[in-house]
Design a protein around this nucleic acid. Structure first.
Length: 684
DNA sequence: AGACCCAGGTTTTTT
DNA sequence: ACCTGGGTCT
């Protein structure tokens, strides 16, 4: 039994599995069987009875990764045993800890989790109260500054590089930022909400302030494993160190060359410094690749060798040389798209490959348009991965806001979103009055609104509206709290109580739109039902936690990927995946490396991104380049990405479908295409 | 409340 | 070129 976990491992993998005691760093190159090592290692610990399954903590970054890992571990040790392992994301783990213990540091246990969108709304609102700064700093920029700050990022938050901003503004900005963060925090606090970063930061704070509690966790988790270690940020790193401290059975697995989330606060430095922090750490490098041809690996190795900040490693495989990398030069992006379509068709004819064997990768989502058009015209099925629409839809947000209020009436964002949906005659005047009552934030907007009614501070109409709103929330708060409450049924009642179907009807312009939007509402109900059926202890709070942490991953996208269709996605979303045939579109300076990223994060992260793209391929890579590209409505000549030049030329076959001079000369006269006038919107 | 217009910006996006 | 957000007008 035990031997079977080791049989099909190479010596390095085997050592990584067997080295269970003490700190271990596994440098796992792309395609080197990283997941296999982690799952076997867990199975080994369980089978050898080194610890109970529940004493193992395995952390991933995404829910998807956690699920997959649980499945794979389940295949080895049985699904039932796999259930007991604490195998989750950082954030989900912290939510668990906080839901149980956060009262010890003065927070309420029924806090809401404030997603990225809600947080942005909050930033906007605070910014709205402040005069004179709104013009200079975008909410997005501030949000990312806040996040980097909260994650204990060492470097200063990026300051907008912009000629229009006078030189002394940066100093002012830096001086002012802490105050802004303070306001943001107290707004969150008043709303009894935590953002994603708080989940991590407060867990750490909790552990620091309550050493006895930390000790219990340390006692409990005997083995700690981390996947995608190159993506950890400062706080995550501190959390890991804290919990693994006494036993030091900390195993981290990652690849510094695939660190592509620096802009998110990930610090690849951690992987480079691991054996400085743990001098006795065993370091194992997995460099045998089981995925790609030797040609692909040589190209990838050559490219990444240009990075200085890395641990040197060279991937190798025994899968044969394979075919040279194809480099196709097209005229503009539409030409490129057609070339992609034709080349794909050509390969299919030669190899019998299915559509699902192809991925078209690009740096930026806007590149997908022309490619989609070309594929559609040719009748080639495709799926575009990415985009986060579902949870952005108004209906979905509305319903979730009601549910969030039922779980935590203090949730200010949710309150403001639906207090007047459907219309209850609560206008700006009433809301201002209420807002004034909140004062410095000591009173939540919910309580303030109660008081406003009680003290007759708002006009009759608004007061009546507020009272009915209060009643609905209170009613459903109670109902949801009943033990074994039928969540879906209650949620349906809630929609009835606010006549939401009619509301959608009223605000839809066409029957199709109505169907679509009501369909979204039903999708939320279905999601609740799924939670009800699959969760160990279903609850409203549990459902909301799951959804807050599960971003936009409605299961559809996952299932869609299975279908036989060409996959279109950004390189970022391709991390961790593999395809027989990979096309990389838009290999031009400015796109990859992206010029803005170049400015803010430096060249090396962009190079890693290109490296990730190359190493997704099993059999063959084709890189595409357009000589001219539409940029912000202007046609511009492009320059070949420097990364293409870094691939040894003997590995590449270049085909030029468009001559530079032709493209250049075609550019000047054709600036005015007959422009279609925009018609007035056709009514239903 | 809803329609309309203009200005600004425009990379990636695990949770 | 295109979308978003905010402001204004009806």
């Amino acid at each position: 039994m035990i031997e079977t976990f080791l049989d099909d491992l190479n010596p390095a993998q085997r050592e990584a599995v067997l080295h269970t005691e003490g700190p271990l760093l596994v440098l796992a190159g792309a395609g080197s069987g990283k997941t296999r090592v982690i799952t076997r290692r867990i199975a080994h610990i369980v089978a050898r009875k080194l610890a109970k399954p529940s004493h193992i903590l395995a952390v991933t970054f995404t829910n998807k990764a956690a699920e997959e890992m649980r499945d794979r571990v389940g295949e080895l040790v049985g699904a039932k045993t796999a259930q007991d392992i604490m195998l989750t994301t950082f954030h989900a783990f912290c939510v668990r800890v906080l839901r149980a213990h956060i009262h010890r540091i003065g927070y309420r246990k029924d806090f809401s989790i404030c997603g990225e969108g809600d947080a942005r709304t909050l930033v906007r609102r605070i910014l709205g109260d402040l005069d004179g700064v709104r013009e200079t700093f975008s909410p997005q920029r501030l949000q990312s500054a806040i996040s980097l700050h909260k994650n204990g990022c060492d470097r200063p938050p990026p300051f907008p590089v912009d000629d229009k901003i006078p030189a002394d503004t940066e100093a002012k900005y830096r001086a002012w930022l802490p105050e802004f963060i303070g306001r943001y925090q107290s707004a969150l606090r008043a709303a009894n909400s935590l953002d994603f970063d708080d989940l991590l930061a407060l867990t750490l704070e909790l552990w620091r302030k309550e050493p006895d509690l930390l000790a219990k966790f340390q006692q409990h988790y005997r083995y700690v494993l981390v996947d995608e270690y190159q993506d950890t940020n400062r706080i995550q790193y501190d959390l890991l160190r804290a919990i693994a401290e006494p036993r030091r059975n900390l195993c981290v697995v990652g690849d510094d060359d695939q660190s592509i989330y620096g802009w998110r606060g990930a610090e690849p430095a951690h992987i480079l410094a691991f054996d400085r922090d743990y001098p006795d750490a065993r370091v194992i490098t997995l460099d045998q690749n089981y995925r790609s041809t030797e040609t692909i690996l040589s190209a990838a190795n050559a490219v990444i060798a240009n990075n200085a900040e890395r641990r040197a490693k060279n991937l190798w495989s025994t899968l044969g040389a394979g075919r040279p990398i194809e480099w196709i030069v097209a005229g503009d992006e539409e030409h490129e798209a057609r070339a992609i379509m034709q080349w794909l068709t050509h390969i299919q004819k030669k190899t019998d490959a299915a559509c699902g064997d192809f991925a078209v990768l690009y740096r930026s989502n806007l590149q997908s348009r022309p490619i989609e058009m070309a594929l559609r015209q040719a009748g080639i099925p495709y799926v575009v991965v990415g985009g986060q629409e579902f949870f952005e839809r108004a209906e979905v947000k509305d319903i979730l806001a009601y549910l969030k209020l039922a779980a935590n009436p203090r949730n200010e964002t949710a309150f403001l979103r639906v207090v007047n949906v459907p219309r209850r005659g609560i206008g700006d005047a009433a809301l201002h009055r209420i807002h004034d009552l909140c004062g410095n934030g000591s009173l939540s907007i919910w309580d303030a609104s109660l008081q406003a009614v009680r003290r007759g501070l708002v006009e009759k109409n608004a007061a009546a509206g507020l009272e009915s709103f209060h009643r609905i929330i209170e009613t459903f708060r109670k109902r949801f709290r009943q033990p074994d409450a039928p969540l879906r049924a209650i949620a349906e009642d809630l929609l009835d109580a606010i006549a939401y179907r009619a509301e959608i009807g009223r605000t839809s312009r066409t029957p199709q739109q109505f169907e679509q939007r009501w369909g979204n509402a039903e999708a939320v109900l279905r999601a609740i039902e799924i939670h009800e059926q699959s969760a160990k202890a279903p609850s409203l709070a549990g459902f909301l936690d799951e959804n807050a942490l599960d971003g936009d991953d409605d299961r559809q996208s996952r299932e869609k990927r299975r279908e036989d269709a060409v996959t279109l996605m950004t390189i970022h979303s391709a991390k961790g995946l593999e395809f027989p045939f990979v096309f990389i579109a838009g290999c031009e300076e400015g796109l990859i490396p992206h010029d803005r990223s170049l400015r803010e994060n430096g060249i090396e992260e962009e190079r890693r991104l290109f490296y990730v793209a190359l190493t997704r391929a099993k059999r063959h890579v084709t890189v595409f380049e357009a000589l001219a590209r539409n940029r912000f409505g202007r046609i511009c000549m492009t320059k070949t990405s420097r990364f293409l030049g870094e691939i040894p030329s003997e590995l590449v076959r270049r085909r030029v479908l468009a001559a530079r001079e032709m493209v250049e000369s075609a550019m000047t006269p054709m600036k005015t295409k007959p422009r279609r006038k925009r018609r007035p919107r056709p009514l239903a």
